[in-house]
Design a protein around this nucleic acid. Structure first.
Lengths: 231, 231
DNA sequence: ACAAAAGTGTTAAGAATACACCCATGT
DNA sequence: ACATGGGTGTATTCTTAACACTTTTGT
């Protein structure tokens, strides 16, 4: 930050600043990402992350909230956890000109996107079956997924993807979906309970011709690091 | 990235984009950061991170290299490892107007900064004895230090701070300086050697009235994750 | 009674921690 | 010979990993 007044007034032309969001949610025990179908060129009618420009005077987080509301009908409080990821800045990423994009990851319990004039049919896609994507958005999603995997192992971030009351089986399936490998049931439960992040409730989940599951609740709904990293 | 042509042409005014760098190096077994004394307002003659504006058409990494060269006489290849940290974007962080700053961490074996017209006396300060800083640069350094601590535990990032040939004592001191706590000598050596990242050389370090130290060399000079995290 | 998912313990191997003395060198 | 930092091993505790059967419910 050492540009001078003259730079600001004359020579200096900043790149365009944009914000793109990767919203994750679990649907049927599989990790999904929210995509919208682009209404305009470039990449018209291709699938893309919800994103938009960031004007002077608003923070990137404010821009994110505004854009998600307008383009997907999603409110800031639908996201249990939001984290800035990375700033993508290669000159060629937008065919119209240099656009630097600050990216965010948002985790939600449930997403009910709404279509509108700006973007028809926002829709959730399984991360393992994504359509072809506009811009460098496939890279951004890959980056976000890696970050999520890492966060899951050393923080309590799962809380943001599960309902308030959850069974240990639901929890394990969430981990398996994101880490993309099977976990041992007994070891998983022993380890998770030892971390002491969740407490049993008086509720049970009855959902079929089998023994009902004990429901647990996270003691804290804020991000915290784990004493010992998970898996 | 959904702004329209009309936004680009008329209404849309992006914030200024800047890049700030946190360069770390070890001096006398203590972690140091490179700071420059600001030549102009605002914060004139206060210490600050080397930074500058990012023009349209250059990547933030290119801007970083250009700025470090111009303001501190440091070349890109003096940095063994560079990593993007975070993008700071609060509206009030620059008194002249909204400036969004993409920040980088750079690790060097040795820094020999050069003063010049743009910034007198770039200088290394111990992270535990920083002067008062311009802007939100104290926050940025704290963020970088946390990231460095984390990187040290799950990657081989130390290689970027040590000379090509190093003794296990030097290595341990580097860890102690950054993690800011003492480590057990025998356990440290056992664990580090088990990771198999370094190999002994035929060289020794003689530097006083005591037994000379075996010198090691990292097998790879690229960042890699450790199988088991360190400490 | 049977199908379906919930729930539960033990053993063995590996990793982390705590801890104290001898070694090689220069002066 | 002494001061200085370099180098080494073992015992204990904790953590991880592997593994299979019983329980509770709905139909």
């Amino acid at each position: 930050m050492q540009y001078t007044k003259s730079n600001m007034a004359n020579e200096y032309q900043p790149p365009i600043l944009t914000v793109d969001s990767v919203l994750f949610a679990l649907v049927d025990d599989a990790l999904h990402v929210l995509l919208i179908r682009r209404a305009a060129e470039p990449f018209k009618s291709q699938w893309a992350l919800p994103g938009g420009y960031n004007a002077s005077g608003e923070t990137t987080r404010q821009a994110m909230d505004r854009i998600l509301q307008r383009k997907a009908g999603i409110a800031a409080q639908d996201l249990q956890l939001v984290e800035q990821l990375y700033t993508f800045d290669t000159v060629a990423r937008d065919p119209r000109g240099h656009a630097v994009s600050v990216t965010y990851m948002g985790l939600a319990r449930k997403l009910s996107p709404q279509g509108n004039a700006h973007a028809q049919s926002p829709q959730l896609f399984p991360v393992h079956a994504l359509p072809s994507l506009a811009y460098d958005h496939a890279d951004i999603i890959r980056y976000a997924h890696n970050r999520l995997r890492a966060k899951l192992t050393y923080t309590n971030a799962v809380f943001a993807l599960l309902p308030e009351l959850f069974s240990l089986t639901q929890l394990q399936k969430a981990y398996e979906a994101i880490l993309d490998r099977p976990l041992d049931k007994r070891n998983f439960r022993k380890k998770f309970l030892a971390l002491n992040l969740a407490e049993p409730t008086t509720h049970q989940l009855k959902e079929g011709a089998h023994r009902p599951a004990q429901l647990y609740r996270f003691k804290r709904q804020e991000l915290q690091e784990l004493e010992r990293s998970f898996d």
